[in-house]
Structure formats: structure tokens, C-alpha cells
């Protein structure tokens, strides 16, 4: 565990807390893409299958349980909560996310480290995570105005990816640890998807104005 990896995990955790805080305090999920949240739930459930087969550390186990349960809770809230679900922007959130699931499943069956159920699921989850933010970014772009908490949620998610890249570079030099190239390539793609968002986020932060994305 190094400082970049820890910062990455913490910003990931903060992003989820920010999202829960938004839903809890405003009793609203406007601006939040259910599709992206469903994709994250699928990502965590398929990636953390090793929860029942391998033990790495208490930290690792706790974080995995937190990520799986929080993502399922968020999906439940947007779909079923009697107040929250009314604010869901259904007509703006039309991204065909199951196509991403299908494409990533095919890719995982072709490109993986080892042909085992767990390893193919792991590769699938890495690919899916890389593109899972797309429905959210499309939704934000369509709605134009981004409320503060939603903006911060996406910002922290992007920061988490950036820290993970620094972590891989650090591990490469300090431990001669080669991060799997599947993770590296997907991680870089995933971080790049945030570049545009980051640009507008920093401009609005610098000008102390509300975050607005161009149509």
C-alpha cells in the first residue's frame, strides 16, 4: 500500500459518500444516471468474486464489501425508494448500457489472463468499469447544469482513477511490480474519459461559478 493507492481508494470512497449524501439530504437523484450506477453494481459484483475464495487483508475485504453494498443500495434507492425515484431523469438517461455490458463480455472472453471463470469475470469488470461513467457523462451533458454534489461526485471518481495510475507508476519503480496490462490500458482509457469533464470542472472552480457543460 502506498500513498497514491490509498489516496485513490479514499477518493473512490468519498465519491460514493458524496453521492449517498446528495441522495439522502436532497431526497433526490436528479442528475444521477441509474445506468451508470447499475454498471458499477455489476462491476463490483463480478470483480470481487475472490471475496469468497481468497483473503488478502482486512482492509481489502472491508473495502470490497463497502463497494458492493453501497452500489446495490444506490441502485435500490433510485429504482424503489418512494420519494427518491420520482426525481429520476428517466427521459434524459437513455444510454443503451446493456450494449456496453455485451461488448465488454465479448472482449473479456477474447482478452484475459487466464481462461477461468473468475479471471474472465475479473477482466470483464475491468473493461466495464472503464466505460461505466459514459451514461453519467451523457446525462450531465444533456442536462447542462450540474449541481454541486453531482459535480463533486464525478470529480472524485475521476481523481480516484488518476491516483491509481500514479500508484502503478510508483509500484513499478519501488516494487518492480508490473500491473497487469489489462488494468493499465483500461485505467488509462477510463481516466481519459474524464479529461473533458475535468477541464470544465476546473474552469468553474477557478471562476467560482456553477459547473456548466457545453451542449
Amino acid at each position: 500500500m502506498n500513498v497514491f493507492r490509498f489516496a485513490g481508494d479514499m477518493t473512490h470512497l468519498i465519491s460514493i459518500l458524496v453521492l449517498l449524501l446528495k441522495i439522502y439530504t436532497t431526497k433526490s437523484c436528479s442528475g444521477i444516471s441509474l445506468k451508470t450506477q447499475e454498471l458499477y453494481a455489476v462491476v463490483f459484483v463480478t470483480r470481487y468474486l475472490d471475496l469468497v475464495t481468497d483473503f488478502i487483508s482486512v482492509y481489502n475485504t472491508v473495502m470490497k464489501v463497502v463497494f458492493i453494498s453501497s452500489s446495490l443500495a444506490i441502485v435500490w434507492c433510485i429504482r424503489r425508494h418512494k420519494v427518491v425515484r420520482r426525481s429520476y431523469d428517466k427521459e434524459l438517461d437513455t444510454f443503451r448500457h446493456w450494449l456496453l455490458v455485451g461488448a465488454c463480455a465479448v472482449l473479456a472472453l477474447v482478452v484475459h489472463e487466464k481462461f477461468s471463470f473468475q479471471e474472465v469475470c475479473w477482466a470483464f469488470s475491468i473493461y466495464l468499469e472503464a466505460v461505466a461513467i459514459l451514461p453519467q457523462l451523457v446525462l450531465l451533458q444533456r442536462s447542462g447544469n450540474v449541481d454541486n454534489l453531482t459535480g463533486q461526485y464525478v470529480f472524485f471518481l475521476g481523481a480516484y482513477r488518476a491516483f491509481y495510475i500514479l500508484n502503478w507508476i510508483y509500484r513499478y519503480y519501488s516494487e518492480q511490480h508490473f500491473t497487469r496490462w489489462i488494468s493499465c490500458v483500461s485505467g488509462i482509457v477510463q481516466t481519459a474519459l474524464y479529461a473533458d469533464f475535468f477541464y470544465y470542472y476546473f474552469i468553474s472552480w477557478k471562476n467560482n461559478s456553477k459547473l456548466q457543460l457545453p451542449a
Binding site: 475472490d50 487466464k114 479471471e119
Partner: peptide
């Protein structure tokens, strides 16, 4: 080795 395909990152 055991660590070969162990995923220690989240």
C-alpha cells in the same frame, strides 16, 4: 506462485 493472479488492488 500464489500471488500470481491474486488481485490485491480494488
Amino acid at each position: 506462485p500464489l500471488g500470481n493472479l491474486l488481485h490485491d488492488e480494488l
